[in-house]
């Protein structure tokens, strides 16, 4: 989910840039040098995982996973996502330099929202874990699509139909992200609970 170069208006780029810098500053403040290696290597894992394509019918979509990023990293999701997007610009010319701030906000704000709203439910029973993470995954993509649509709509009112199309096209992605996030978080809980936040609540 990217906005390309040359589409957005100056005001939207400025707003996105300011928000992205603020979020990244908070995120960096929360990271100390003991955690930074962990966050960097997890960011690489997200980068690689977002290249995984899953089938839907005859077509395929790639995973976004900003729900899991939020749950695992909290505020550190902001710098992690900014780094990932910057590397995507350098490697593949996806997105771009000028919309980088807006693209970061589109991905990172839902991640942080999900962290606050859904991660408290992780340590309940497995059913609740699965349900909460399903909604975390689905909601984060839905929220991102809404933010992307708003950025386009605020740039140019004529983008309304395009925005609605984008939201519609993301519906299957929202469900798949939910399912994948649900299974993935349950998997963490069974296999490697140390990776999840708030471990003390388990005891």
């Amino acid at each position: 989910m990217h906005i390309s170069e040359g589409v957005l208006s100056g005001q939207i780029m400025a707003a996105g840039g300011v928000l992205a810098i603020a979020g990244t500053a908070i995120g960096l403040k929360n990271i100390d040098y003991d955690k930074i290696v962990n966050i960097a290597i997890l960011s690489s894992a997200f980068f690689v995982a977002s290249l995984i394509h899953v089938n839907i019918g005859p077509s395929s979509v790639h995973l976004i996973l900003n729900g899991i990023v939020g749950i695992l990293l909290g505020w550190a999701a902001f710098p992690a996502i900014l780094v990932a997007l910057l590397l995507q610009v350098v490697f593949f010319q996806y997105g771009g330099l000028t919309p980088l701030g807006v693209n970061t906000v589109i991905m990172a704000v839902p991640a942080i929202f999900v962290y606050y709203v859904f991660s408290p439910f992780i340590w309940k029973s497995y059913k609740i874990t699965f349900t909460a993470s399903f909604f975390a995954g689905a909601f984060s993509v839905f929220f991102s699509a809404i933010l992307l649509g708003s950025a386009l709509y605020l740039t140019e009112k004529n983008f309304l139909e395009v925005t609605i199309l984008i939201l519609g096209a993301h519906l299957p992605v929202i469900i798949i992200e939910g399912i994948i996030t649900g299974f993935c978080v349950t998997f963490f809980k069974k296999v490697y609970p140390e990776i999840l936040p708030n471990l003390q609540k388990l005891e």
Binding site: I41, A45, V48, A49, I52, I68, I176, C184, F188, I195
Partner: peptide, 19 residues
């Protein structure tokens, strides 16, 4: 989807242990 979720999950687990 479950297989992909476990694949991605295992990737994060290994990343974290490597870190």
């Amino acid at each position: 989807y479950k297989t992909y979720a476990y694949l991605a999950g295992m990737l994060f687990v290994r990343a974290s242990m490597r870190a």
